[in-house]
Nucleic acid binder design. Structure first.
Lengths: 339, 339
DNA sequence: CTGAAAGCGCTAACAA
DNA sequence: TTGTTAGCGCTTTCAG
């Protein structure tokens, strides 16, 4: 016998029809006992595996979902991926990773994969959709897509999110509680929704405490190490340098702290720094980073759960799940020095 | 029209047979010009996408490859993944990520995916195969599998590797050049091939310099942060604590440095530390980590290239590619203090 | 250069 | 409970 065994081979050896084999192997409960175990044995001995293409073609489903992120290279997404994968596996789905590199064409490609049968549904972790809205509506309406972490407005898609505004406000309040007044914010690439929300949280906290935000106290970064360094330097060269910085993600916070050190400033002695994300290395960093913890694995889990509900028709209207965050107070923040 | 357009729909609208449409759309050069562009236009306007299951079933290929790693959660694999993906895409393949979690069953599962048509080939980045050798031989012989970074011996599989022994030796020689004599090694989980090789490099360098390796100077870790901390502490509590430590990977090195700091020791003032991997955060770490850089993206690229050659039948016998490494000397190593 | 026809391997009506 | 039959959408001989 050349190549892998087919259902027909099993049928022949077991002396039954292909249909019976199919039924036996997929646990429909429609096959009687003497036959059932015989088929199973034969399948086992032939080392049988159903051909997925044939099955998918016939059933019109791929039993796969697509998880699309901006950049697979970012460790931040990994734990989410794990959460997604675990839940998907348990339901018999496999997970394909998609990587857009912030490239509109590639995003479209992944949407196309839904239509061409590559995947049955999609978990989107990218914030912007590049096409004109009407086109989007056409494509998106009724598509099995769940948005995680980011926000895509006006399309009625289910979301799994965190309270970016509240979490940021809490982070900044922590700095205010420590007596800081000149608090700057290194933001993500506004006007992306997530970055705007984190900046809003910062502004709310400042305003509630009656603190002013000087011009230029909200430089815009790109969530990468290097921009943390550059923007921190600019901030420190001002006549009114901050005594604390709330940075929109951990990676930029690492850059910020490094730059402060290079400038001869002590963290947290001279300047306090708070990040956002709680990467697994953040507590191994020196000083251990005070940062906002997101329940990443749970976010992935919930996103996949939602998607399963969409896929089974249980979930018809868009629902937004909000997952809790927690400020991890560690060594990068301290009381403001008395003036 | 319900559902996505099929080849038949295009054929109908263009007034040709399905066969011609198929030929036109797959650029076989067998379709004449008036027809060709008409078909393309119709396909475009119908927003046609070929159904992958049908195509795969017919062609007996999935145009997908599987990249299997121990732990997707490890950022170390990400850049490799990127290299693999870029090369795969260019050749029209997509990449599926597999995650074994060091679980034998799951490894088998991924091998099965080759047989059931999920993927056409596989890039394996796990060091051990759990099954009895004869079984392995049956399964593996002639399978389109390329091993990257790790080593699987005796099965005649193509490999893409680095010189773990040489790189480790060079790392330790760097410490010796700095005047260190009491140099310890925190190893990976021996007897895994990679861990053994790195330890061998350490031993070779020590022996070549005529330096002794006291009992207990080679504690065995698991490549995770925490074991770096624990093992470092044990090392420092000895009557003859090391003045330098060569750690088998960066993650454990981070743990090591943190623990040293906790013990009130300065890095590199009191103890020098060298890692292995050069994670993207290693230069952002404090102090910036001296470590062995591996060309990760290139490793992924080459592994995929090899796999493509296997897939096209260009590569028939096992070939082992060795990629260069480079010691990145940064701030975590310094001259030994005079005694 | 184009069309007709067969079939990839599987599952799901419909019959028996 | 099992078998018969048809067909998922595509590509590829084989004819013309």
């Amino acid at each position: 016998m050349a190549g892998p065994a087919k259902i027909k081979d099993i049928a022949a050896r077991a002396g039954v029809s292909p249909a019976t084999v199919s039924r036996a192997l997929s646990d429909t409960g429609l096959v009687a006992e003497p036959t059932l175990s015989r088929i199973r044995e034969v399948a086992q001995s032939l080392n049988y595996r159903p051909n997925v293409s044939a099955r998918n073609l016939r059933t019109q489903r791929s039993m796969a979902v697509l998880m699309v992120v901006r950049d697979v290279g970012n460790p931040f997404y990994l734990e989410i991926m794990k959460g997604v994968e675990a839940t998907a596996r348990a339901a018999g789905y496999s997970v394909l990773m998609g990587n857009t590199e912030n490239n509109a064409e590639r995003e479209v490609e992944y949407f196309d994969m839904l239509r061409d049968g590559h995947a049955d549904g999609m978990i989107l972790i990218t914030g912007k959709l590049p096409w004109s809205v009407q086109e989007s509506r056409q494509h998106l309406h009724g598509l099995p897509v769940v948005v995680a972490l980011e926000t895509i407005e006006g399309l009625g898609l289910p979301h799994v999110q965190i309270d970016n505004v509240g979490a940021s406000r809490a982070a900044v309040e922590h700095l205010i509680d420590l007596g800081h007044e000149r608090i700057a914010h290194i933001s993500g690439p506004v006007p992306e929704v997530m970055s705007v929300k984190r900046r809003d949280g910062y502004r709310q906290a400042m305003s509630a405490a009656g603190l002013a935000i000087p011009d230029g106290y909200e430089p815009v970064g790109d969530y990468l190490l290097h921009s943390g360094e550059t923007l921190c330097r600019a901030l420190c060269e001002r006549p009114d340098p901050p005594t604390a910085i709330f940075v929109a993600n951990d990676e930029m916070a690492f850059g910020t702290i490094n730059e402060l050190r290079r400038l001869g400033l002590d963290v947290p002695g001279d300047v306090s720094v708070v990040g956002f994300d709680d990467l697994f290395l953040s507590q191994a960093f020196y000083p251990p980073l005070t940062t906002v913890r997101q329940p990443r694995a749970e976010i992935g889990q919930e996103a996949m759960r939602q998607l399963l509900r969409v896929l089974t028709g249980d979930l018809t209207e868009a629902e937004t799940l909000e997952m809790p965050t927690a400020l991890q107070v560690r060594g990068s923040t301290a009381r403001a020095k008395p003036i």
